[in-house]
């Protein structure tokens, strides 16, 4: 069950934040768009959507919400990031724009655009028993993968890429959840439910 009166925000600087808000609405949660510090201050949990991580960082810095988000995450705010959001939550990133910063918090190393360019983007079913008994339809769009995980990070799902290696694509560490794929553009809300029921409690 979703905690009563849980206020969830979706970072709405750029990307598919509306799809996350719709997914949350399907889980009976009215989420708000977060662009300002006062909006951030009014939420208990945050989702960082898909989009371009470089654009999101640039806007977050310009509008002085970068450090406040970083601090909230470090202080334990439940946060979920999909794709660009996963990059934003990672402590370390590779194949990034030179000097690209992240909010951090998740003890992982993420490779940006790891699966390749858009022509290599794909959808598939993946298995993530902690999230759902049924396979999850996962859409990977210029997606990252997780290259290294710290000892406190739980790998919820992995996928074998064309390099023949199985890479983590869904991870959790305490109050932080990240997926390399985009459940928000499918009608499977199990990842959002898992975030609300398990991560936000």
């Amino acid at each position: 069950m979703v905690a009563k009166n849980l206020r969830v925000g979706v970072l709405a600087l750029q990307g598919d934040f509306r799809e996350h808000i719709e997914a949350l609405a399907n889980c009976q949660v009215d989420a708000i768009e977060v662009r300002r510090v006062k909006e951030l201050d009014s939420v208990d949990a945050l989702i960082i959507p898909g989009g371009e991580s470089t654009t999101i960082v640039s806007l977050a810095k310009t509008f002085e919400i970068f450090t406040p988000i970083k601090k909230r995450i470090a202080a334990g705010m439940p946060t979920y990031g999909s794709c660009a959001g996963m990059i934003m939550l990672a402590d370390h990133i590779v194949a990034a724009k030179e000097g690209q910063e992240t909010f951090g918090g998740l003890d992982i190393t993420v490779r940006r655009n790891a699966f390749g360019r858009q022509v290599d983007s794909f959808e598939t079913d993946i298995s993530a028993p902690a999230i759902s008994n049924a396979p999850i339809r996962a859409v990977f769009i210029r997606a990252p993968w997780v290259e290294n995980v710290g000892k406190n990070v739980e790998v919820l799902a992995s996928y074998e890429a064309s390099d023949g290696i199985s890479h983590a694509v869904a991870v959790r560490q305490d109050h932080l959840l990240a997926t390399a794929f985009h459940p928000e553009i499918t009608d499977d809300y199990s990842v959002h439910r898992y975030f609300l029921d398990k991560v936000c409690k």
Binding site: Q14, F17, E52, T55, F122, E123, I141, I185
Partner: peptide
């Protein structure tokens, strides 16, 4: 979904 989804990620940009 993969093609249209790519454009979804560009929104607001």
């Amino acid at each position: 979904r993969v093609k249209r989804g790519m454009a979804e990620m560009l929104k607001g940009g």
